[in-house]
Design a protein around this nucleic acid. Sequence first.
DNA 1: TATTGTTATACTCTATAACTATA
DNA 2: TATAGTTATAGAGTATAACAATA
Lengths: 154, 154
Amino acid sequence: MFNLASYLPYLVNRIGVRLAGAFGKELAAYGITLPMWRVLAALRQRGGQRVGRLAEATSIEVSTLSRLLAGMERRGLVRRERASEDARSVLVELTQAGARLIQRIIPQALHYEDVALRDFDRADAEALKDMLVRVYDNIGALEEEGLEKARRSA
Amino acid sequence: MFNLASYLPYLVNRIGVRLAGAFGKELAAYGITLPMWRVLAALRQRGGQRVGRLAEATSIEVSTLSRLLAGMERRGLVRRERASEDARSVLVELTQAGARLIQRIIPQALHYEDVALRDFDRADAEALKDMLVRVYDNIGALEEEGLEKARRSA
DNA sequence: TATTGTTATACTCTATAACTATA
DNA sequence: TATAGTTATAGAGTATAACAATA
């Protein structure tokens, strides 16, 4: 009736734990944490962006992100400044040091993906990723439905 | 060269964050946390077991698990006693209250899986789970290789 | 000595809400 | 009033190491 070992949330969680443990230790050698790595990667890819957008891109809570950015700014990895168009927002950008650091780490990160997918051919790897995107979207849709239900009953 | 949005560890992590957020809130209504739910589910499925084995089954650190179990014991959900065969180990079991609670929660848990896989047919869902198991094993193999490398160089 | 758990400490992430600054 | 971020606080998880009990 219920089997933990084939329960999707559990399967996803244990991979997350294992990856975070392994890659996190490697990142420690560079003096950064896993959330910091995600911030650097998101900034590298999509360029400077507002804090809110960065929170979505990295799946990190805004308040958590704010303190994380403060630490990264102290370490000279990112720069924050009020946006000119809408002075309520804050624009976050990579510094040169941050850009250099993420560039050095990317090969390590790709190595982890290679290992995780070592016995997958390219088509299967793509299929897996596509399915994971669908799963993510499905859960997001659930949340929105939940919110609407809450709104209707309020 | 590097795309966060198609990077496997990121795809897995964001699903984990989203699921933990949604299901965790539901569990709060029952007065338990997500790690507690995993402990209850593991105990229900494989019966009473040692703390170490429970740690593996749930992907929770032993020291974290120990304190978690202390709280669950205070709440009357589990029972701990020294194992008779090897008195170094501690056997953890569900109490009747714990068994009743997990039984009530299982339908909710299954609902989350249904939503996450809402647009998957049965074969695709199975394929996805099989791939996730392989990914988990691959990363585990990496860790062991890393340990061996460390051993050899030590 | 090695193994199984427990406990202690310091650190990080989360949830929540109060607060600041804009709009 | 509403939105974007920041800050504060309390709670929970993690890493590490010291410790207790047993083998």
